[in-house]
Structures are given as structure tokens and as C-alpha cells.
Amino acid sequence: MQLLKRWRLTPTRAILEILMIVVALCYLIPIWMVFSNSLKDSTGAGLMGLTLPSKPVWDNYAVVFRESNILRGLYNGLLLGLITVITNVVVASMCSFYLARIKRKISTFFYNYFIAGLIVPGSIIPIYLEMRILHLNNTYIGLVMLFVTATLPFGIFLFTGFIKTIPREIDEAAIIDGSNPYQLYFRIVFPLLKPVTITVSIFVFIAVWNNVAYYLYFSKSTQYPLPLSIYSFFGKYSQSWNLVFADILVGIVPCLILFMFAQKYMVSGITAGAVKG
């Protein structure tokens, strides 16, 4: 019945609508400030007004593309993000397949072993020592190992929960038809994991993209992804807010566009993991 009621404007409702508009403005004004000031000269942008300039300085973007390591940052971010995602999905889902299907003490032990990582923070200084001993400091492969490890507990948590909902009869049918374990896993089970694979991939990619600490501790500036290159750019051009804002906009617009497509999966992923879990 609730749905059939016509939408009417009551005083309470008007207050709530206005409240939501104010909240939305708190999120939109910062973006607008970045956009409008990225089109001013450096004096104008220093004033941080919210009006559009009468003569937009599109040249700011040309300067940023020349001076800031945008392409390098994009390459680093995508390379590290994608390799971490692929490794995480394969390693975590295979592990979860065993943990979800074998009901012995060893599964419970290793499940808890991994899940503890969701709560206990990584010990960053000893990792630094270990990375130096293994000569993995400032290498892409070292960063990937650390990112996969850091996101493994989350992946195993979601994959194990999902695999438990897939009936075991599917495995048995495949086994009776003569699949070996690897065919069973890669041909039969893995394709069924598609929804949770999408969710894990998106969250792992964002975790790598938004990471700050690991890049500061374990990488050199030529390995920085786009967000950190924006921060370094600010270090050099902190007096030219017009250029900084242009760099920020170039850095966040691709993220926001991807977010538009991904947010549906993120919402369902969070919901599956958090609410029903």
C-alpha cells in the first residue's frame, strides 16, 4: 500500500528535501570549486571564488599534461591495480574453494588465520626490513605481493561466503563426468563466481588506487600512481592553485566516471558482505 500513496509535499517532507539538498551541496561544491578555479589564471585561482572566469584559461590543462606525470601515473596505477586484482582473484578464489568445501579443522583454522587480517593491521616496519632482505623494495613485483597480501583476507571472506551458497551437487556432477580438480575449478566453478568476482575486483582495485602508506614506504616516486603524482605535483606548484586544480580534475574525473558504472556492483557487494553476512 505504501507504494501506491501519492507523493505529497508536507512540511516535514519539505524540511527533509531541503536538508538533503544541503548535504548534496556539501559534496558538490568542492568539485565545483576545483573545476571553476582550474580555468582561472594563478591569481584568480588563489582567491578560490566559486564563479566561472569570464575568459577560461584552457591552457592550464596543457601545462598540466606537460609538467605533471599524468600518463606515467595512469600507467603505474592501472598496471599495479590490474595485476593485483588478477592475482588476488585467482589466489583468493582457489583458496576459498577449498575452505568452503572441505569441512575439517584445517579449513576452520586457515579461514580464521586469513580473516584475522581484516582486523589486525599489517606491521609496516618489519615488512620494510623483509622487503630489503628480499631485495623487493622499490620494485613493482614487491608492491604487487604486498597489495595482494593486504587484500587477501577481504577476497577470501567474500569468496568463501559465496562458494558456500553454490550447491555441491554441481561439483559432484562434474567429477562423475570425469573432470579433474583443475577442470572442475576453472571450467565449472569459477564462471559461477562472476558476481562476487566483479565485487572483489572493484574493491581491490580501489584499495590499490587509494593506498597511500605502501607507496610512501615501499616505492620510489617513478612508481607512483596518478593520485600520488598529483600530490607530488602540488609539492612543486603549491603557489599555482589553477594548475593544481586542473591536475586534480584530470585525476578524479576518470575515477568518477568509472564509479558511475561500478557503484551498482559496489552497493550489492557491500550489502552481501555486510548485511547478510
Binding site: V91, C95, F97, Y113, G122, E130, M145, A150, P153
Partner: peptide
């Protein structure tokens, strides 16, 4: 058909780096 080999990569990575 659920070989323990499946959990080995995850266990090694997580043990060594965490």
C-alpha cells in the same frame, strides 16, 4: 577433487608478507 594445493599460494603469500 579438492586438493590442498589450492590453498598453498594464499597461505604462502599471507604468511610471508603478513
Amino acid at each position: 577433487n579438492y586438493p590442498i594445493l589450492f590453498i598453498v599460494p594464499a597461505v604462502i603469500l599471507y604468511t610471508v608478507f603478513s
